[in-house]
Each structure stands twice: as C-alpha cells, then as structure tokens.
Design a protein around this nucleic acid. Structure first.
Length: 276
DNA sequence: ACCTCCCTGGCC
DNA sequence: GGCCAGGGAGGT
C-alpha cells in the first residue's frame, strides 16, 4: 500500500515526466475521488490550462504546484496508484481520475477502493496539513530524538499507533511502522511514554534507513499488486521485509516465530524475542 | 481511547 | 457468502 516510499517513488517519476508540462484537461470519473473539493467541478476548472512547476511530497500527500498559485493535491489512499501513459493506451479498470498533458501523455489515478482523492486548492484555502494537522515528514523533517522523546512523554497509546498517527509523524503506514519497530527492537505494544531515551533513539535511528531501503527498491508491491510504479513495474521491497506479512515464519534475526497481533484494529507483525 | 464507516478484490 | 486488507474521518 502507498506509504512514504511508494508515494516518493511516484513523486520522482512524476517530477521527471510532468514538471514543465501544461495540463490540457482533467476528468473525474468517480465523484467520490473529488469528495475533498467543495464543488467537485472545481477540480477540473482550476487545473485546466495550468503549467506544472514543481512536485512536493509531505507525508503521503503529493503536492503539484501549478502556475497561478494553484496546488493540485493527490492522496493515494490505500489502493491508489498513478499511471503515466500515452493518451491512447487502453484504460485499466478503476481509472477514476484522468489528467491530460500537452505532450500527449496522461496522468491516471487508478484506485479500486476509492480511499484516495484529488483536490485543487487556491491560495488561502487550507492546504497541506490542514485536514489532519500533519506532523513532521518522517523522511525530510524527522525530529531529533530528544524532541521525539518529549512528544512521546505521557502518551499511553502504543508506539505502533503513534507511528501510524499522521499528526505525530507523517508518512509511515502499517508496513513500514512494523519494519521500523523491528529494526529498533521495540515491541509495538509499548506505551509511547514508557520508552527509555535509548529506545526512542533506536526508533528514531531506524526510521530513515527503513524508508530509504523501501525507496531504493521502488517501494512495496504486495501480492495483490495494488501498488505499482507509474510505468507499471512492481516495487520489490516485499522480499526484503523483516516482519510485515511474515506471521508464522521464522524471524530473520533469531529464528523464533514472527507473530501477528492487533493494535488499534491494525494487523501488527513482530518478533517477541527481538522486540521488547 | 475506542469504535464504525467508507470501498472493492481476493480468498476461503 | 463472509471475511479481510487499511488510511483517514467522524462520532461517542
């Protein structure tokens, strides 16, 4: 599923292919994808004819900066992926947003479960971070460990839940949160406020290497191939995962069995021997 | 802090 | 035919 490494991989593909292009037209095929726009028709009206100046990523959000101070925001939800193809190419099912560019290519948002969305924001409208009060980006703005420790102090929620909370830290999802906690050697069930300074430092130190490793491999495409790169290739970080999806398999470090528990309704994979 | 909902494909 | 996957919003 699209978490920070998958969104960043997508961003890099888009940056290479879309920056400098002008948007010819945009079409929302599935109205639910425009649910964050006050008036759904605004999306097409606001981005048509505009030049793509830059593409940023904040947490799991893609922010396309257009001329006229318009920002086109895309969130992939949990089943969304971007396809970048020639306009005439056959369309996959669940192609819910189509944006035509002036070079004959199309940006297509394919999202079976429609948890993703697009929105076009004008200056002064609530932008990045406004709807969820997004925390610092886990890759680009990772707080120092004393700072993280301060923000964890007094928190009774399990650390896994805090890592998934986009207001606490933006970008981690279920896969990479489990991988970070394994690398740090910390149990996902530990209350945030119970972590020692050293444990916080280990978690902090694990975050960027785990995200960068995912990034190097083009992200994680699970067996369902819900996530693919914009050119249709699969990311291959799946085979490198240490705990996610490996319940019942031996821990790659100690050989004990990886177990699956549930934290806040989310499946959680960890090694009870390596993570305390 | 907890629950429910949204939504569809894949699997048993 | 029912359950599961889960990011995020909303309600209590």
């Amino acid at each position: 599923m699209p978490e920070l490494p998958e969104v960043e991989t997508t961003r890099r593909h888009l940056e290479a292919a879309v920056v400098g292009r002008r948007i010819v037209s945009a079409e929302i095929r599935h109205p639910r994808l425009a649910r964050r726009q006050d008036r759904p028709a605004d999306f097409s009206d606001r981005i048509a004819g505009r030049l793509v100046l830059r593409i940023d990523r904040i947490g799991k959000l893609l922010m396309k900066r257009l001329d006229g101070e318009v920002t086109w925001v895309t969130h992939l939800g949990m089943s969304g992926r971007v396809r970048l193809v020639a306009a005439g190419d056959a369309e996959e099912p669940h192609t819910n947003v189509v944006v035509r560019l002036d070079d004959g290519n199309e940006f297509r948002l394919v999202d079976p479960r429609t948890f993703g969305f697009v929105v076009a924001l004008l200056p002064g409208e609530p932008g990045e971070g406004a709807w969820t009060s997004l925390g610092p980006d886990a890759l680009d703005a990772l707080p120092t460990s004393p700072r993280l420790a301060r923000r964890l102090a007094g928190r009774s929620a399990p650390i896994k839940a805090l890592l998934l909370d986009q207001g606490f830290l933006a970008g981690l999802g279920n896969i990479y949160a489990d991988e970070v906690l394994f690398r740090a050697g910390v149990s996902p069930h530990r209350p945030g406020g119970s972590l020692s300074r050293d444990e916080v430092a280990r978690i902090r130190a694990a975050i960027r290497p785990v995200l960068r490793a995912g990034l190097r491999h083009g992200g994680t495409s699970l067996a369902d191939l819900a996530y693919l790169l914009p050119d249709g290739r699969a990311g291959d970080y799946l085979s490198r995962l240490k705990v996610y999806g490996r319940a019942g398999d031996p821990c790659r470090r100690c050989g004990d069995e990886i177990i699956r528990t549930v934290v806040r309704g989310r499946s959680t994979h960890w090694c009870p021997r390596c993570q305390t």
